[in-house]
């Protein structure tokens, strides 16, 4: 499936910078490192819980760089007033995980 990822290269660079600043271990960020960042958005916790569900694609309780970009993308869109989807639309699935 050759759909372009909705996370644009310049956004991905910004999200990667945030990811690296949070001190990933083995290329992964644990939930307790990501949680305060998402809480900073001031979005309701149930929305953030859904953002996590959608972005932790392999359900391992940690986010890698691509999963973190999905989470940040959803948070930024939610802050712009767009609803967080109930399931991840294909263009939001990172190309590395299709």
């Amino acid at each position: 499936v050759d759909i372009p990822w909705v996370v644009k290269p310049e956004e991905k660079m910004k999200f990667d910078t945030i990811f690296d600043s949070l001190g990933p271990v083995g290329g992964m960020l644990t939930g307790d490192k990501v949680k305060p960042v998402l809480l900073n958005s001031k979005l309701p916790v149930d929305i953030l819980g859904r953002v996590w569900e959608l972005s932790d694609l392999n359900r391992d309780g940690m986010l890698d760089k691509d999963e973190f970009s999905v989470a940040m993308y959803l948070v930024y869109r939610a802050l712009e007033g767009e609803p967080v989807p109930m399931s991840l639309p294909p263009p939001l699935v990172p190309p590395s995980k299709r």
Binding site: D32, K35, V45, G49, W52
Partner: peptide
Amino acid sequence: QYPAGGSSTNPFL
């Protein structure tokens, strides 16, 4: 820490 039956991988539940 997590509610029974909740996802133990989701830090927001």
